[in-house]
Amino acid sequence: MIEFRDVSKRYPDGTVAVESFSFVVPSHETVVFVGSSGSGKTTLLRMVNRMVDPTSGTVLIDDQDVQQVDKVQLRRSIGYVLQGVGLLPHRTILDNVATVPMLRGVSRAHARKDALGLLDRVGLDRALATRYPSQLSGGQQQRVGVARALAADPNILLMDEPFGAVDPIVRAELQVELRRLQSELGKTTVFVTHDVDEAFKIGDRVVILSAGGRIEQADTPERIVAHPANDFVADFIGARSARRTLRVQDVDGREVVVDGDGRPVGMLAT
C-alpha cells in the first residue's frame, strides 16, 4: 500500500508542481495517474522512490515514511520503468536486466540466470540476451525496461509513461502484455500517462489530475465513464465525443456497436 498524505512540491523558483495531494494506492492494484503536462503526475510518481522529495507532507509505503528509508535501498526495492527506458548502452540486455539484483549482492551467474527467465516473462527472445540496447527496437527496449524493473521481485512497480515513445501498434501490444503480467504478478503499480485511453486499458483505478496534482476524479474506469464527476473530467475523457457515445445498430440481424458518427467499432457479445 502506498499512501500520499497531504504532499506538496514547490520549486525554489516558485513553481508549484503538486499542492496538498492525498491518495491511497491499495496493495496489488494498478492505479493510473492521468493528466496533461503540468498536472504533477510524474512528480507524484517520483516521490514514491524519492527521486523527488516533497516540500511538505509524507509518502508512506506499508505505513512506513519513505523519508526514513535510505534512498538507495528504497529504490532497489521498487521497480521503476521510465519513458526514456535508460538502459545502459555499454552493457548487454542480460546484464541490464541483472543490474539491480547484482547491486543487491546477488552473484553474477545467479542474476544472469534469473534475468533469462525474466526475458521469457516479458516476451523477449532469449537470443536477444547478448545484444546491446542500441540493437533493439523501441518496443523491445521497453520490454527490457520492464524486465529490469521486475528483476529484484519488488512489491511496487512505478511506470512513468513507459509506452509514450513507441508507435501505436507496439503500444497496444505492450498494454495487453502489461495487463497479462499484472494478473500473473499482482504488483502494487502506479502508472503515469497523459493518454486517457491507455489509463482506462491499464488501470484498476484511474486518478484524473488537473494542474498542481488536483484530483478531479478517482474511480474505476467504468464508473468514470458512467459518471464523470465534473465538466473537466467529461472533457478530458471525451465523454461527449463520438468515440465514447456508442450505440447498438441492427445490421441484418446482428447487433453492431457504432460510435457517435455511426462508424462501426465492434459487435455486441452474445
Binding site: N49, M51, V72, Q73, L74, R75, R76, S77, Y80, L82, G84, V85, G86, L87, L88, P89, H90, T99, V100, L103, G145, R148, A149
Partner: peptide, 27 residues
C-alpha cells in the same frame, strides 16, 4: 552521457559513486 541512462540508473538504486564508476565514466 545520456540523461535517461543516468536518471534510470539513479532510479533503480545506484549510489552516486556506482553511477560515476559504472555508468558515467565508462560511457
Amino acid at each position: 552521457v545520456s540523461v535517461d541512462a543516468v536518471d534510470a540508473s539513479r532510479g533503480i538504486g545506484m549510489t552516486e559513486w556506482q553511477l560515476v564508476r559504472a555508468v558515467e565514466v565508462p560511457l
